[in-house]
Structure formats: C-alpha cells, structure tokens
Write a protein that binds this DNA or RNA. Structure first.
Lengths: 216, 216
DNA sequence: TAGATTGTTAATCGATTAACAATC
DNA sequence: TAGATTGTTAATCGATTAACAATC
C-alpha cells in the first residue's frame, strides 16, 4: 500500500522566525565562516536551539553534524520559502508620508517586491515621481492592474478610504493585499491579506511596559 | 487553606486580536448601538465567536446575556489592557523617510504614545521641526533621556547603526524599544523590545502568494 | 575516538475550539 | 416563555520543548 506523505506547510510562527534568521545569516555572510549551526543562531537571537533546528527543517536542506548548515545554502533556501528569490510587481495606493516612505524603502527589493507604480487622488502628487516611481490617479487602477498583471497591492490610504480602495483592487483582480491602514478591511476568502498593523505591535509594547512598571 | 488564584496574563495572540477588535469597536461607537456581542465582532472580522468571547474575558468586564457587551465599556477596557488610556513619552531616533512618516502619524496619539523629540546625525535635520517635533543631534540622547525620564525609544535608523543606537539608549535607562530597523538587535533581558519588522509581514504575504500561484 | 551537531520521534505546553449550563 | 448570548469547564489541536540515536 502506498503511504501518502503528509506535506505539512510552514507554520506562520516559523515563517516569522525564518525572516529573522535571514537577517542574521545575511550579516554573517560577510564574515569568513562558511557554516553556521542552529546553536549559534539560537545564541545570537536568544532562542532555543531546538526551535531553530525545527524551523530550519522546513527549508528542506540538510546540515552537517559537527559543522551546521552551509550559510549560502541556508540563505538561499530561506529566501526560497519566502519566495524572495523571485520578484513580484506591486502597486502602492496612497502616497502620503507613510506611502512615500515605503516607496523609498530600498530594502523591499531584496524581499521579492518591486513597486512599479503609486496611486493617489491628490492632484499635486499625480504625475510626480517619488523615489523614481510615478504616481497616477486612482482611477487608472482598474486598467493598469489588468494590463500589467499586478498581483500585490499595498494600501497606505487613510482608514476612511481603505475599504473602497481594497474593493476596487479586488474587483480588478488583485490577488494579495498588504494593508497599512489602521482598520479592518473585508476581502473575499480567496484573497490574501496581510495587515502590517503598526498599532498591533505598539499595543504589545505599551502593554508590556505597563506590566513592567506595575511590577515595581 | 487559602487558594491562591492564578493570575494568567494576556497571551500575545489575544493582545493582537484585541487591538483589532478595538478598531472595529471604534467604528461602531459612531453608530447608534450601545451593545455589541462577540458574535457580531466575530462576523465582522471572520473569526470564531468563541475565540472572541475568550479574548474579551481578559478585559475583565462582563457582558449581558442576549445583549452582548456595552460598547463604551469594552472600548475603555481594551484600551486599558493596552495601556492606551495613559500616554507615554517617546524618543524617535533616525528622522529619515520612515522616521518622518512616523513622526507625522497622528494615530499613535490615541495609542498611548507621544513622541516628544526626534534625533539624527544629519546636520540638515538638526534644529528642524518635523510635524512640530524638534530634531536634535544624537549626542543629546543621554542627557535628555534622563532629564525627561523617557521610557520608550523608537528606532528608525539604518540597520548598520541600529545596535549602536539601541546600546546608547539602553545604557541611559530606556525601558522599551520599538525597532523599525530591519535587523536583529541585542538587548538585556529586562528591556522590552518589540520589532515592527515590516519584512516579517511581507514574508508571510509573499510566501502565501507563492503557494497560491503554485496551486494553480 | 570523543564530541558537537543534526534529525527524528516523543512529551509537554498553551492556545483554540467545543460543549453546555446560567442568565436575561 | 423562548431564544440568544454569556461564562465556565472540558477536549482538541498545533507549536514548542525534550530526549536520544545517527553522523561526521
């Protein structure tokens, strides 16, 4: 009888840690070492070595007893899981201060993301180039999503217009949304949505700080 | 024999969802309704009603059978858990484009955060006001942290200088750090660090998108 | 060889989900 | 009253941690 192997997909907590390992590994690539062990990564980041090993399993590459993992292989394999070895085109909507900061953020290029156009309704912005990316009027979105086959939309508009912009992009075939608007938006179940939600991160910080201060 | 009640602290996943409920509740406050049930919140956000109820337990307030929870009370109680009813002063270091976007982001005021000064090393920025917040030279940090008793530091410097800035702030008594630099930084175990890590969020998105495209 | 590390299998822990009585 | 919802206790699920044999 054929045993079907259960393919277990990478858990979200593992994905999050993998991106963090990547930045540590990236730094170590500069140094002379060829290998890195899960123990070393764990020590640097203050994590459990067993957890690191378990996470690295999902990359599918195997290490060498006594040596660890080949840094270059590990680096490549993690980028592969995140799909950062490929580049996806993206549209950014809302070229306010946060939008402009993201347009100018070089780093995303090494994270598989290429923002190829920005959109806004502010006439002063339309036609301008920000960090060499042209800003169009929002009403160009339907046409351009289809023509350029763009799959990722980045939402940097105010909370009040976020749902409308999301609907517009979804209706025109966007597949994934990265939402920076501080609000819950509804999307059909087959659309990928990832909330950057700065306030979520801030909430954890202020909560912990309050606990800490209370403890005195 | 006295039974000591085990006080269970709010789990991180619950805290994250609580901040999201807050934004939904905030919108509903405008509407006429006085009460909201966990079922309604769950429907709006596409979550399990049981999970919402469980999360709301941590606020300590009790609901009314058949009605749900008083919106105002719930709103207040969630802000209380996050410590968003108080305001903490914060310093922001690195007034580049991301730093400037954060300095201008009004929303954090309602999240218990008040950025009272910015820091940079760029002479063109020092002395300037950005969104009405003055930018000082980084060498003013030690003196000012102590004098103003600031507890929160926001790191918006490039990866290459993040660790140095973190060390400087920790050495001078900062208690909590909100790190936007795309790098792992080391802090003593008693210092709270929260990584905003946009790339982590992006990694999840690009991974999911790749899985989705593969599935075709 | 000795020892450090991997890789696998099992145990534990905690969060999510389920079940159901209590309440208005 | 009937019915929707809360709140509590139990069951399930999945992630983390532990244990240990295999490897170079």
């Amino acid at each position: 009888m054929i045993k079907l192997e259960k393919i277990k997909s990478t858990p979200i907590p593992t994905l999050k840690r993998l991106t963090r390992y990547l930045s540590v590994i990236h730094q170590l690539k500069e140094s002379k070492t060829d290998y890195i062990s899960s123990t070393e990564i764990a020590n640097i980041m203050g994590l459990d070595p067993i957890q690191v090993r378990k996470d690295l399993e999902f990359t599918g590459i195997s290490g060498f007893p006594r040596l660890g993992f080949k840094i270059d292989d590990l680096h490549f394999a993690i980028k592969e899981i995140l799909n950062w070895n490929n580049t996806e085109d993206a549209f950014l909507v809302g070229a306010g201060s946060l939008g402009q900061a993201i347009l100018g953020y070089d780093r995303f290029k090494s994270c598989g993301l290429k923002i190829i156009a920005g959109f806004d309704i502010n006439p002063e912005l339309i036609g301008k180039k920000i960090s060499n990316i042209e800003i169009y009027h929002i009403n160009k979105i339907p046409n351009l999503i289809k023509r350029l086959n763009v799959k990722i939309g980045i939402i940097c508009v105010p909370a009040s217009s976020a749902q409308d912009v999301v609907d517009l992009m979804v209706d025109n075939g966007i597949l994934a949304l990265w939402n920076f608007a501080p609000i819950h938006v509804n999307v059909p179940s087959d659309i990928i949505i990832e909330n950057a939600q700065l306030s979520q991160s801030l909430g954890i910080l202020t909560h912990k700080l309050a606990e800490k201060i209370k403890a005195y």
